[in-house]
């Protein structure tokens, strides 16, 4: 069996688990089951779920926030201030959410089966000019932040602006925005740190959830050995991914900040608590209301996530 896999961009930390999975599956089946990974050749990233639904390719990665209405159930993982603190925790909670029948049903509308997450650390802000010393300094700060994070920033008086990720560097250099929110690897690859002066270490307003899915029919068509090889390799692929992110990407992050003399801004816990109070609860309530209206067990999903965070799993 040969599967086509649709990713985008180029090979990077964010795609290491897929690369590893392909390697493991081919090894375990002695080359009987191979994956042909394409970076952008088969689809654009916002159409990957459509491609899975059509059956144009068998596996793909996408981010829930690209199109909330396509996958409302998993956007629970993108709510601000959930309190997830490690990649391992992000992975475990994502997997638990993916196994929930309502979530599986949501993705089944696309003939898709959720395979694994691409855990990303919490977003934080990189910015130009004087470093903020308290949340009050965010008043009037222009920031590139989309969706839930943008809404959260608005609650402390910041001015969120939307633009595509590729325009962010230029918008910062030209002063259209003073700051941008991304995960560290994206701050590095989109060059937002090049001229930046500060970075928030613990704002942690949230992150994006980017699952890897497979076409359900293709999964069913696999031989038992092939399916076992695929599903049995997910854990090892994720271990490799997290190890790579923690030990390669995050290892480069600190020095990258130091090289450029970027100030690390850490807010006192009571400030973060106040921010969380102002932003998290209204966002969660709005999400639950909107998705209950869609017929999802929204409260239950939200409780599942917050419960696991509280348990510290």
């Amino acid at each position: 069996t040969e599967w086509n896999v649709s990713l985008w961009g180029k090979r990077r930390a964010f795609t290491e688990h897929v690369e590893k999975l392909a390697e493991l599956v081919s090894e375990k089946t002695d080359g009987a089951f191979t994956m042909n990974i394409s970076y952008g050749g088969l689809s654009s990233n916002r159409e990957n779920l459509d491609g899975i639904s059509i059956g144009a390719f068998e596996m793909a990665q996408f981010c829930a926030g690209y199109h909330a209405d396509k996958n409302p159930s998993i956007t629970v993982m993108e709510l601000p201030f959930l309190g997830v603190s490690t990649l391992e925790q992000e992975r475990d909670i994502s997997m638990a959410v993916y196994k929930h029948p309502a979530v599986a049903g949501d993705l089944a509308r696309w003939n898709a089966t959720l395979l694994m997450p691409s855990p990303l650390p919490q977003y934080n802000l990189v910015g130009l000019g004087d470093a903020p010393s308290s949340l009050a300094d965010f008043e009037g700060l222009t920031v590139r932040a989309t969706g839930g994070i943008g809404a959260a920033m608005e609650t402390v008086g910041a001015v969120p602006t939307s633009m595509s990720a590729t325009e962010v560097r230029q918008a910062m250099d030209s002063g259209v925005i003073k700051s941008a929110s991304f995960a560290p690897h994206a701050h590095m690859s989109f060059g937002t740190i090049e001229n930046a002066t500060w970075w928030t270490t613990n704002l942690n307003p949230g992150t994006v959830n980017c699952p890897v899915v497979v076409n359900t029919d293709a999964l069913d068509d696999l031989t038992d050995d092939e399916r076992a090889a695929l599903l049995g390799s997910v854990d090892e692929a994720l271990d490799h991914y997290i190890d790579y992110y923690n030990n390669q990407t995050m290892a480069a992050w600190g020095p990258a900040l130091d090289e450029r003399g970027i100030t690390r801004v850490t807010f006192p816990p009571e400030e973060i608590e106040a921010f969380k109070k102002a932003a998290a609860e209204p966002a969660a309530k709005a999400w639950i209301d909107a998705n209950t209206a869609r017929g999802l067990p929204a409260q239950e999903l939200f409780d599942l996530v917050t419960g696991m965070v509280a348990d510290g799993s």
Binding site: R46, D50, S53, I54, G65, Y66, H67, A68, D69, K70, R109, T146, G147, G150, S162, A290, A293, R294, G295
Partner: peptide, 27 residues
Amino acid sequence: WAHFDRSFDPAMPMWSRDSSMDIGIPI
């Protein structure tokens, strides 16, 4: 038409099964 049809669901709010990235308008 199939592309449109995948983004359209009369049972959903605003008949939407696909929304824009930033402010979530139906596509």
